[in-house]
Amino acid sequence: MDRVLKRKAKGERPYFFEDPNVDKLVSMIMGLAGETSVLMDRVDTIEQLLEKKGLLKISEIEGYEPSTQVLESRANRREIYLSEILRIIEIELEAESLEDNAPYSSAVKEVEEG
């Protein structure tokens, strides 16, 4: 999409936390919350239309009992989803268990000298 308009309002942007990155995270999280809400409204529209056209009763969604296979594939999808979100925490643990904790400068030195 062409962004023709300016995106930043002129003037120094205030940050409220000691670390401005916290403010940036707040902004990202609310951005994601917004896009999720857009998605929820869209799913709702689809449901409403399907019901209107007689293709589905919304109550059927509430009464829907997924098969074992569906349950399993959903669980798998959720696991991947969570691992994507929590990666930053997990890689710390991974680093510890692999003793991957040398300062980066030592790697530079090692490569330069090796």
Binding site: R13, P14, Y15, F16, F17, D23, V26, S27
Partner: peptide
Amino acid sequence: YYQMFSSLLRTSQEM
């Protein structure tokens, strides 16, 4: 609390 409130309010304006 005020910091978070302000951060949220400013963000809502930008959004």
